[in-house]
Design a protein around this nucleic acid. Structure first.
Lengths: 348, 348
DNA sequence: TTGAAAGCGTTACCAC
DNA sequence: GTGGTAACGCTTTCAA
């Protein structure tokens, strides 16, 4: 992005305030004429101790006047634990499905009084990343299985994490697992295309790195669904560019494929357009099937068939995390959470 | 999402390890037979002090054996500051453009040795949110201007934030600003449609809440571009559903609109399809213009014209943050960072 | 009802 | 070169 920042002179404004140092509870105590303990009692509404109303007011006023804000690090240091649930910020934008999932989850965890923090880990691999997360002493960690090994789980637990929950296609030793076996997506796709009479089935494998975790099991799922039948399955690499799609479409006749499961709706839209431009009729010559059930697929002509993916609700997941935190000794559980179903429209 | 988690019994695994307490540097010192200070020197590679090689080795081995991980809260408490840059996790999934922007930014800030944390603030409004952020004592905060008022800026600064940078269409008193005036996007769109000979111009305003911050200035920009001309500008509400689009398309003739700027490419695709289904010819009867320059727009027929939006690179932004942190006394600066240019294809 | 003091895990200063 | 010690900001027990 070659865009250059243009500096605009700041309009005259109020004089910058004197850079006071950060007010502490001691400052509040001093201003209110009470002890630090009293300040703590008042601001935390400690029920075990009864503070007179005038004192409460004085403390609150002092806190407000100073703009006092408690220091989270000091607090959790003293308490010996935090309510922080850590999850890695996704390295690649993973589409609206994942985004909504995250939002729901954050909301549900907030309701349970947890604080969700997405930690950007760039360049750190495996155990390095686990160590960086452990430094924050989160009470729970929610992480794609691809980013954490068994040693990573151990590091986090030793650092006091009461819950480690992974999600993705595989289990990780020692952690609770939300098993999203994308095999099921592929399996569903394979069965559908076979049922529609297709026998030479292509499966798009994105060329972009970072997606193998999902694309490989999806391909495997198709293979598995068609094992023992007369159908043939072919992996088809495709980058998310018009050029790549055009090149693939040009080779289409020689591939001899009569149906393609295109990883997701976006790749499906890209490929479908390229095939149409190359004169391939859809679905007569080749059926096209996407995944994710995006709204946009419905707008194409022919309308895009897709695999609808059911993710667990944020509320369920939050409750799982909470349960794990409350009973850290429990055996790691494995939950199968990914539902897949065909939405047949016109492209298959 | 009605999907129900299926519990799968855990396979037999290694006995769960004894729940030791979290190892501290004191434990490492004890095991290595040195003092806590020495441990600190060794693990932090303090250059001011020279430690014998055998001692170093003993410390490293002890740390490894115990699985010692330093406690970030304790460290920053002692240090009096952190390297944490805080940004709110977006409440609504904001498309691939924003996602890539965030990723680039995280990467660039990591290069400068900052730690990026996305803090999920659900339900907290304005100053409440600012206070929650302030508790973490971040060294810098990067936040959409819509989520922070001047008082919020003051709270954060009093809590020790050396840099507060807002981005979005408006400035916030006391903070550095990345002025993304979406007026420019609308302006660009208005000029283009006018130049194409259109005179009765509709501007889609998403019905979804949370987007007003962007949709309002875009509409204003179109108005502004066409002020004093013979063109007429009409705001057109549209929800992101097929039904809403169909209803709008049915009313299209009575609206008497010959060109529409559709907020972004996704709304444009939705509307364009509905118009086509209703028999409106594009671009002959009505021109359609999107924004964001998504790949998918190129796949439509007619190909979707769009406004390409140039965001600042993550590197530039990271450098701005770094500069602000290093010189917190500087006057707040305002940078104009949003470039808009027409990409004309076939729909306009 | 309030105050004094200990301690959470680290690091930096100053003696040894 | 290495080890004690104080201090960061907060909560909580105990004593007054």
């Amino acid at each position: 992005m070659p865009y250059v920042m243009v500096h605009i002179p700041k309009p005259p404004s109020a004089a910058s305030p004197v850079p006071r140092s950060v007010p502490t509870s001691a400052d509040v105590a001093r201003l209110a004429g009470v002890s630090r303990a009293t300040v703590s009692y008042v601001l935390n509404n400690t029920s075990a101790v009864r503070i007179s109303e005038p004192t409460r007011r004085r403390v609150h006023e002092a806190a407000k006047e100073l703009g006092y804000v408690p220091h989270a690090a000091a607090r959790s240091l003293r308490a010996g634990h935090s309510r922080m649930v850590l999850m890695p910020a996704p390295a690649i934008a993973m589409g609206p499905l994942y985004g909504q999932f995250i939002n729901e989850l954050q909301w549900a965890l907030s309701r349970l009084d947890y604080t969700v923090v997405q930690y950007g880990t760039v360049g750190l691999r495996g155990d390095e990343a686990a160590r960086a997360w452990a430094e924050l002493r989160p009470v729970a960690v929610l992480v794609p299985d691809a980013e954490l090994g068994p040693e990573g789980v151990a590091v986090l637990k030793r650092a006091g994490a009461r819950g480690v929950v992974t999600f993705g296609p595989e289990r990780v030793e020692g952690a609770h697992a939300l098993l999203m076996d994308h095999d099921a997506v592929g399996h569903c796709a394979g069965r559908h295309l076979y049922a529609r009479g297709r026998r030479r089935i292509g499966v798009v494998v994105p060329a972009e790195t970072g997606l193998e975790t999902y694309s490989r099991p999806r391909l495997e799922g198709v293979r598995q669904a068609l094992r023992g039948t007369d159908a043939r399955v072919t992996g088809v690499p495709l980058a998310y560019t018009e050029q790549s799609a055009a090149e693939l479409a040009a080779r289409w006749p020689e591939l001899g494929i009569d149906a393609v499961f295109a990883y997701n709706d976006e790749y499906a839209m890209l490929l479908m357009r390229a095939l149409q431009d190359a004169g391939v009729r859809i679905p007569e010559d080749t059926a096209v099937l996407g995944a994710d059930d995006l709204m946009l697929g419905r707008l194409l002509r022919p309308r895009l068939s897709t695999i609808h993916i059911d993710l667990p609700s944020g509320r369920e997941l939050a409750e799982l995390v909470d349960r794990v935190v409350r009973d850290p000794g429990a055996e790691p559980e494995t939950h199968r959470v990914l539902g897949a179903s065909v939405v047949q429209r016109e492209s298959s």
